[in-house]
Every structure is written in C-alpha cells, then in structure tokens.
Amino acid sequence: MTRRGVHRLLALVLALAMVSVTPTVVANLATGPAQAPGWWTAPLLAAYLAVFAWLVLHAVRRTRPWRPVWALVLLGDAALGTYPLVAGHPDEVPWVLALSPLTVGAGAVAVPSLWGALGLTGAHLALRLALQLSGVWTVPGDIAVLDAVGLLVIGTATSVAVLSVRAAAGQVETARAAAERAAAEAAAARAVEVEDSRWDGIVHDDVLASLSLTAHAHDGADRVRARAAAGRALTSIAHDPDGEPGPVPVAEAAARLSDRVLSAHPRAELTLPGRAGGRVEPEALEALQSAAVEACRNAVRHGRPGGVPTVRVRVRTTRGRDGDRLSVEVRDDGVGFDPRTATPRLGLAVSVRRRADVVGGRALVRSLPGVGTVVLLSVPVVPGAPGGTEAPGASGVTA
C-alpha cells in the first residue's frame, strides 16, 4: 500500500469512528437534560457533520486528509474546553466526553510521532481535568484515573499502528521506485545490447560478406554478386526495426521471413505455417530473420565442399510452458561436424546465438559428421489477433 492509500484508509477509519460514537451522543442529547444551549450545540454538531463528509470525500476522491483530521482534534478540544462555560447545571456524564476517544485517536493520526500523539493526549486530559474541577462533571478519583489511562492507551496504540502502517507504505514505495529504476536501467541495457547485436550481425553477415566478394571478384558475374551483396549491406544498415509501428502478426512475420530467406538463398526449400494467432515484436522478428538467413548461408558455405547442399527451412508456431513461439528450423544434408570438437564459428556465435539470446529467443545447433546440420531458432509470440490467411505450404526448389 502506498502513502496515498494509507491516507485514504485512515480517513475511512476516522469516518467510521465518528459513526461509532454517534449513537452515544444522540442518546445523551435526546434523553438527558439540555445542559448546553442550542446556539452552542447546533454549530458544533454541524461542524462534526462537515468533517465527516470531508473524510468520506477524501476516502473516495483522494483529497488531502490532514485538514479534516486536525479539525477533529480542534473540535474535540474546543468542545471540552468551552462546555463548562455554557453548561446550565452539573451532569453525571456530559455528552462531550463521548468525543474524547475520537479526539485522541485523530490526534495520533495527525502527528508524525509517538511523542506528539502523547502530547496531544496530555492536552486533552488536562481539559478533562478542568471540566471536573469546574464542577460540571464530578466523578471519583479512581474512575477519572482509569479514564485517563484508557485514553493514553488509545493514543499510544493508535499512534504505533499508524506509524507502522506509514513506515510499511514508505518501504513499499521505496521498493517500487527502486524496481522501476532497475526496470528502466535493464530496458536501456537491453536496448543497447539488441542494437549492438544487430550491428555485429550486419557487419558479419553483410558488410564483411560484400567486402569478401569484392576482393575475390574475377569476372563480371562475381562483380554483379558483389554489388548485390553491397546493396543488401546498405539496406540492412538503413533498416531500423525500432521504427516498426508495433508487433507483427505471425502470418506477416512468416511472409517476411520467407522473403529474406529466399533473397539470400533462392533455392532453399521453405515450408510456412498455416493460419496462426499472435504477434511478434519487431526486434524479435528482425533477429529471427537475420539468424535464419545466416544459418542458410553457413549451410551453403560449409555444408558440402565442392557442392551445394539441400537446405530446408521450416517455419511454424509451437506452444510450450512459457507460451507460444515462432520457430524456424534450418536443415541441410551437408557433411556436418562434431560439435564437441569443432571450433565455434563466428557466424553461429554472433549472427545466430547472440541475436536470439538478446530478444528472449533460443538457438540450438545439432550436427553429426556425415549427417548434416540442423539449426533450431525461436522467438516469443505475444497474444494477439489471428495472424492472417493460410500461408503457402512450400516454396522454392531443391538446391
């Protein structure tokens, strides 16, 4: 509970306390002799009614609570202090005494310390003593002492409870503020990591690839491929996934992934999912596309020396304990490798695994010598509308 919530709760408690003493006050006024004149009683009761309305309004609308709380303290002390001046004759139990617990409790709420609450309680007890000395109210000394002790207990207990609740609310607000700062810092760090990962992948996948093709160009066909690679590099540099308007439907995400894969490896066999619900965050889709494209390029580069392996790409949605995911499986029938002894390739480390990690995705590489390689990629799918119409079952031809 926040401090504002504590204020509203205390206002509600004080309003209920006023309701609890109302029957006693009304009964004393209705059945007992009229000790105080109407010109004194009526304004006092009207003031209490206004304070009650103010407290209820604060509990509902979050207005400032301290003015009505202090009004309760001042009204109670004023009523007790002026009653001997207007009372017509002595009474066994003047009705203003029924307001004492309310006055003491309001004082414990109004001040921010236990000593302050005890000070206000002591001032109220002094007024009760003056009332008894005036002769308007006369009780045996032991009863007066018991009443005083009871009011001290009420003031102390109320103050301790209120201070404890306020301290707990302060700790909650401090913890919430710290959590918000930590979340903001984590979000900023994640954004930086995502951007760094994207640029590392662009440098490895596109820039270095285009430079390598340019350096090894021997004829017109090589130079055409080098220019195409340079164009892709420039496009990748200019593309900003943060500029996306929002999450992308799964069907559209699959279509974009298909375009990227086929532009990098036109002869890949591609299988797309049918109608699916949910959406994919733009940064996650960008990471998935780039990782899938690099997995295809790795299959072509390393899959079969002296030839081009068959590359099959399967896109689908899967459901697990942590929710739905958009998954891509890149499988080739190349020579494969032994993951236990092979040196990790830069493309797998930077362009595939790291890109998936920084957006909450997963990347798993499986391979055996003579069998081929399988790269499994996935990113989270956020709930949303169905992803569109039925996508084609397959596209591309066998490499």
Score class of each variant (00 low, 15 high):
residue 386 P to W: 11
residue 312 R to W: 05
residue 141 G to C: 05
residue 133 L to Q: 14
residue 133 L to C: 07
residue 12 L to D: 07
residue 242 D to V: 11
residue 237 I to P: 01
residue 341 T to M: 11
residue 93 V to N: 12
residue 35 Q to D: 15
residue 217 A to S: 15
residue 269 E to F: 01
residue 110 A to K: 00
residue 280 V to K: 03
residue 278 G to N: 02
residue 170 G to H: 04
residue 130 A to H: 07
residue 315 V to L: 12
residue 8 R to D: 06
residue 72 L to H: 00
residue 8 R to I: 05
residue 105 G to F: 00
residue 351 S to G: 15
residue 57 L to K: 05
residue 398 T to Y: 11
residue 376 L to W: 12
residue 162 V to F: 05
residue 170 G to L: 10
residue 233 A to C: 12
residue 353 R to D: 06
residue 287 A to E: 02
residue 18 M to H: 07
residue 386 P to G: 01
residue 118 L to D: 03
residue 259 D to G: 13
residue 261 V to P: 03
residue 75 L to F: 02
residue 250 V to N: 00
residue 130 A to S: 11
residue 347 G to S: 13
residue 355 R to C: 05
residue 223 R to Y: 13
residue 89 H to S: 09
residue 369 P to F: 08
residue 86 V to C: 05
residue 374 V to L: 14
residue 138 T to K: 05
residue 298 N to L: 04
residue 262 L to S: 10
residue 207 V to H: 10
residue 345 R to E: 13
residue 360 G to A: 06
residue 177 A to P: 03
residue 149 V to N: 04
residue 289 Q to E: 15
residue 199 W to Y: 14
residue 113 S to P: 08
residue 178 A to N: 12
residue 86 V to Y: 09
residue 396 G to P: 05
residue 216 H to C: 11
residue 304 R to C: 05
residue 284 A to Q: 06
residue 5 G to H: 08
residue 15 A to K: 00
residue 70 W to C: 03
residue 374 V to H: 02
residue 193 E to H: 05
residue 282 P to L: 00
residue 10 L to K: 07
residue 113 S to E: 09
residue 62 R to M: 11
residue 341 T to F: 11
residue 204 H to F: 14
residue 264 A to P: 06
residue 81 G to W: 02
residue 393 G to C: 01
residue 138 T to W: 13
residue 37 P to R: 09
residue 124 H to K: 03
residue 305 P to F: 10
residue 167 A to D: 06
residue 268 A to R: 04
residue 312 R to A: 13
residue 364 L to V: 14
